Simulated assay, not measured.
Amino acid sequence: MFPTLAAILEETEPEHLFSQLVHDHLSSLLKEFERYFPTTKDPRTAKEWIRDPFVNKPGESSVTVQEEDQLLEIASDGGLKSMFETTTLPVFWIKVMAEYPEIATTALKTLLPFPTSYLCEAGFSALTATKTKLRSRLDIRNTLRVSLSPICPRWDRLVKEKQAQGSH
């Protein structure tokens, strides 16, 4: 498939050395990903029920008792299962909200921060810009929230409330 690469490998290094290099590189990448995205702090942990409420594992989700009861009722409803298979995930939870408001509200609060791929890309861009400019900031939630907000600040009002610096 890659005749040039195969020719280079035959001329320079034994095959096992190359595979060892690839393995070492991938292992170091895995360590770096773990450093930036630790699996112990994965926000999806205990929220698998949002993606598929019909594969419920009691006790593993982080919901209240009332929400767990509603989740069990949803999982046992065949009509909701057929609706789940024919609609998208946000549409399913919006339709379920009338009958099961607590569990649907929890699911939608998790799903709605990035409802489109554009907002997801904008979030990654804002995160990259913030991390590049402010490397020492560990908690960037507030900065990211302001960066992604569609609300434009009223600069005239903000400036008017501040006192101008007097001359010396």
Rank of each mutant, 00 (worst) to 15 (best):
Y36W: 15
L111R: 02
E60C: 09
E10T: 08
V146H: 08
T105K: 09
F2I: 01
V65R: 10
C152Q: 15
L21I: 03
A6P: 00
A46R: 13
L89Y: 01
K47R: 15
L144P: 06
H168C: 12
P101R: 04
P90R: 12
C120Y: 14
P38M: 06
R154L: 12
E13W: 05
A46I: 00
H168G: 13
P53V: 07
L71Q: 01
S136P: 00
L5I: 09
W93S: 03
T45D: 02
P3K: 06
E10P: 00
L5S: 07
T132A: 15
I94N: 10
I140D: 07
V146K: 12
R44A: 11
E121K: 15
T87Q: 10
T64D: 10
G78N: 11
T106H: 07
I8G: 00
K81H: 14
F2A: 11
A75D: 02
S19T: 06
C152S: 14
V63D: 01
E34H: 13
G123Q: 09
T4K: 10
L72F: 03
P150R: 07
E34C: 10
T45S: 08
P38N: 06
E73N: 14
Y36I: 15
W155G: 01
P43W: 01
L89H: 01
W49H: 07
S125P: 00
I50L: 06
Q165I: 15
L9E: 05
I50C: 04
C152F: 12
R51D: 07
S62C: 12
L21W: 05
N56V: 15
Q163D: 08
F37R: 09
Y118Q: 12
D156Q: 14
L71P: 01
P150D: 10
L112G: 04
Y118H: 13
V22N: 00
D24V: 04
M1P: 03
C152T: 13
F2L: 12
L148Q: 04
A98I: 06
I94W: 01
F2K: 06
L127Y: 11
A104H: 01
G79A: 09
V63K: 02
L9I: 05
E15I: 07
C120T: 15
D69P: 00
T132M: 14
D69I: 03
E48V: 03
Q163G: 05
R44M: 11
P58G: 05
N56T: 13
S82M: 10
T105H: 07
A122L: 14
L72W: 00
K109P: 01
E99M: 08
W93Y: 10
K109W: 04
S136F: 06
T86M: 09
L134Q: 12
Y118D: 14
P58A: 09
K133F: 07
V65M: 08
S76F: 02
T130H: 07
H168Y: 13
E10G: 06
Q66V: 13
L144E: 07
V65P: 00
Y36R: 15
S61M: 03
K95Q: 13
E34M: 07
Q66W: 03
F84Q: 04
F84I: 05
W49T: 03
E11L: 10
R157Q: 12
V22L: 12
